[in-house]
Design a protein around this nucleic acid. Structure first.
Length: 540
DNA sequence: TTTAGGG
DNA sequence: CCCTAAA
C-alpha cells in the first residue's frame, strides 16, 4: 500500500528499504491483496496458455503479439501450472517492488519464465493513448499473462487496477504513473479505497463491463453486490464464473474487499464458534457441561415443509449444527425411581464387584480426604457407620443410602468424577444438628472431625451445604406443615425430616444468626431434646 | 485449607 | 453436589 509512492522511480536505491518495509509492514495485508489478485487472475484450472507459447510470445514481445491459441490453451493448460504460478508470483512481487527490479532481473529470465515486458509500464502510462494491442500487452505486463480481451475500457481499467493495486479506478481517462493513478481522478487511491471499504460502498458496482469473446466480464459481475446476503458472501476464491476460459473477468468480484458487515458477521460466527468450543471459563470452567451450552437460536426454519422449529446451536464432533431444541439428558445422579429400584432390598447390592476399592475408599475416608479425585466406587459404608446407624429407627434410609452408593459410580467426563450422591440419613442430620449446636454453625471442619469421624464421605462442605438446606427446610417446610400438607411431599422416597429436628435447626439458626459470632456450645432446649431422644437417635 | 455463597 | 472466591 504505502509502497507505491511516486518517489520510487528509479528505485534501485530505495528498493531495499521498500522491500524491507514490505515485509515489516503486514505481510499479511499485502499478501492478501496480492494473493487475491493472483487468485482472480490465475485460476489454476483454466489459466492460460502453455509455457511454450508464453516463451514464444515472450520472444515476440517486441511486436506485442497477443494472439491467443485457444486450442493450445485447452490441451496444454494443465502443464502450465507451475510456470504460471511462478509468473504470478513474480508478478505479485513485481507489484510491490520498485520499478526497475523486474525486466532486468537476470534470475527471472534465467528461469525460462514468460515474463512480459514490464518496461511498458514504466514511468507514466497513459492508457488512453494505447491501442488495444498495447493495452493487451500492458495487461500482460501487468498481470503476467495473456489476454485476448479487446475491450479497451475494460483493459484500461484492469490494467489500472493491476498497476495501482486498487479496485477503485476510473473506467477511463486515467494516467498511471509509477503504479499510482494520476491525472483524472487522482484521488482514487488506497486511502480512498479504504474509505469505501469502510462504508461498504463500491464505486465499481455501477460500472458496466462490456463482454468480450464469450468471457463476458459483465455477466454476473456484481450480482448481489450490495445485497447484504451473507449466504452469498464467500471469500475471495472459488467463485469462478461460468464458462470463462481466462478467468480474468471475475477479478473484481473475487478480489473485492469484504464489506464491513461481512467482516462483522464472519467474526461473529467465529466468536460464537469459539465460545461454543471453549465454553465460558469464567462460568463453568469444567468439563461436563462443555457441550451443554445450548444456544437457543431464534426460530430457525429447518423443516422441509417450511415448518418452524426452535433450534439451538450445538456441537457434534467439532461441527456446529442446529438441532431441534429439546431438553438434554439430565446429568448427575440417577432418578429416584432408580433409587427405589435399588431400594428393593439388600440383595440387589452388588457387593462382589470391586472389593478392593472398598478398602481404598475406607482408607481414604479415614484419612479425611475427599473422594472426588479418586475413582469412587463406594460399595459399602464402613462398619462403624453401620453400627452407628443401626439404632436409627429409620433403617430404611440407611439401606437406601448404602445401596445407592453401591450401585453407581458417576463418571462425568474424562477423569473428573462426581462425588456420588449420598442421601443424608436421619442420623447424619441429627449429628449435624448436634454438631452445630455444640461447635456453632460455620465450624464445619470441627464438626466434621468430631461428629462425623465415622462418615468419611461427608466433607465439611457437605455439612455446610446440608445445614443450609436444613435452614431452607425450616423456612419452607415448617410453615407449610402448620398450614397443611405440602403437596410435594407425596414422594415416598423423600423422607421428610422430622419436624422436631427442623424446629431445632430453626432455633439454632435463629440463635446463631442473632448472636452474631456466637459459637458457644448450646445444649438442647428441653423440648427439642426430648423429641430427639424420643426418636432414639443414638448419637454421642 | 476452610468458609461462604452461588449454581 | 459442584465450583469458586476469599480469607
Amino acid at each position: 500500500m504505502l509502497l507505491k509512492k511516486p518517489d520510487l522511480e528509479d528505485g534501485s536505491s530505495k528498493l531495499e528499504t521498500v522491500e524491507a518495509h514490505t515485509q515489516k509492514l503486514g505481510a499479511n495485508l499485502e499478501e492478501n491483496i496480492l494473493q487475491s489478485l493472483d487468485d482472480s487472475l490465475s485460476p489454476p484450472s483454466d489459466f492460460r496458455i502453455h509455457s511454450q507459447h508464453s516463451d514464444k510470445l515472450l520472444t515476440e514481445q517486441g511486436a506485442n503479439v497477443t494472439r491467443q491459441d485457444n486450442a493450445s490453451t485447452e490441451t496444454t493448460k494443465s502443464t502450465v501450472l507451475n510456470d504460471s504460478c511462478c509468473a504470478e508470483k513474480y508478478k505479485a512481487d513485481a507489484c510491490s517492488r520498485s520499478v526497475c527490479d523486474t525486466s532486468t532481473d537476470p534470475s527471472v529470465s534465467g528461469v525460462n519464465s514468460s515474463m512480459p515486458d514490464f518496461s511498458i509500464l514504466r514511468g507514466e502510462v497513459c492508457l488512453d493513448d494505447l491501442t488495444i494491442r498495447e493495452l493487451q500487452e500492458a495487461f500482460r505486463a501487468t498481470f503476467g499473462r495473456q489476454t485476448n480481451v479487446k475491450d479497451k475500457i475494460w483493459l484500461k481499467r484492469r490494467i489500472t487496477m493491476g498497476l495501482t493495486n486498487s479496485y477503485d479506478v476510473p473506467s477511463s481517462g486515467c494516467v498511471v504513473k509509477d503504479y499510482k493513478i494520476v491525472g483524472k481522478d487522482a484521488k482514487n487511491d488506497m486511502s480512498d479505497m479504504d474509505e469505501r471499504a469502510k462504508t461498504g460502498l463500491r464505486a465499481t458496482s455501477v460500472v458496466i463491463y462490456p463482454g468480450n469473446e464469450g468471457d463476458s466480464p459483465s455477466s454476473s459481475y456484481y450480482q448481489s453486490e450490495d445485497q447484504e446476503d451473507s449466504s452469498k458472501r464467500v471469500p475471495i476464491h472459488n467463485d469462478e464464473p461460468q464458462g470463462n476460459l481466462l478467468g480474468e473477468q471475475c477479478t473484481d468480484k473475487r478480489t473485492r474487499k469484504p464489506t464491513k458487515r461481512y467482516i462483522e458477521e464472519l467474526s461473529d460466527i467465529e466468536t460464537h464458534d469459539s465460545t461454543v468450543k471453549n465454553s465460558s471459563p469464567a462460568k463453568r470452567p469444567a468439563h461436563d457441561e462443555l457441550l451443554m451450552n445450548p444456544r437457543v437460536a431464534p426460530f430457525n426454519e429447518t423443516g422441509s415443509l417450511g415448518t418452524i422449529y426452535p433450534t439451538r446451536k450445538d456441537t457434534f464432533g467439532g461441527f456446529s449444527v442446529h438441532v431441534p431444541y429439546v431438553s438434554r439428558m439430565r446429568r448427575g445422579r440417577p432418578r429416584k425411581d432408580f433409587i427405589s429400584f435399588a431400594d428393593k432390598g439388600p440383595s440387589v447390592e452388588p457387593k462382589g464387584i470391586q472389593p478392593s476399592v472398598e478398602m481404598i475408599l475406607v482408607k481414604d475416608g479415614d484419612k479425611g480426604n475427599h473422594l472426588r479425585k479418586v475413582p469412587e466406587v463406594p460399595l459399602k459404608v464402613s462398619s462403624e457407620n453401620e453400627h452407628a446407624e443401626a439404632v436409627d429407627s429409620k433403617g430404611v434410609r440407611n439401606l437406601q443410602a448404602k445401596v445407592c452408593s453401591a450401585v453407581s459410580k458417576p463418571k462425568i467426563k474424562h477423569g473428573l468424577t462426581r462425588k456420588h450422591h449420598r442421601a443424608w440419613t436421619l442420623s447424619e442430620v441429627v449429628k449435624l444438628v448436634d454438631g452445630v449446636a455444640r461447635y456453632g454453625a460455620g465450624k464445619w471442619s470441627e464438626i466434621r472431625k468430631l461428629s462425623f469421624a465415622s462418615y468419611s464421605y461427608r466433607t465439611s462442605v457437605d455439612l455446610k451445604d446440608k445445614w443450609r438446606n436444613l435452614i431452607r427446610a425450616t423456612q419452607t417446610q415448617l410453615p407449610a406443615q402448620k398450614d397443611g400438607a405440602c403437596p410435594r411431599k407425596t414422594n415416598p422416597s423423600i423422607i421428610p425430616i422430622p419436624p422436631s429436628i427442623l424446629l431445632r435447626v430453626k432455633e439454632l439458626h435463629e440463635l446463631q444468626s442473632q448472636g452474631g459470632g456466637f459459637t458457644a456450645p448450646v445444649k438442647f432446649s428441653g423440648q427439642d431434646g426430648k423429641v430427639l431422644q424420643g426418636k432414639g437417635s443414638g448419637f454421642l
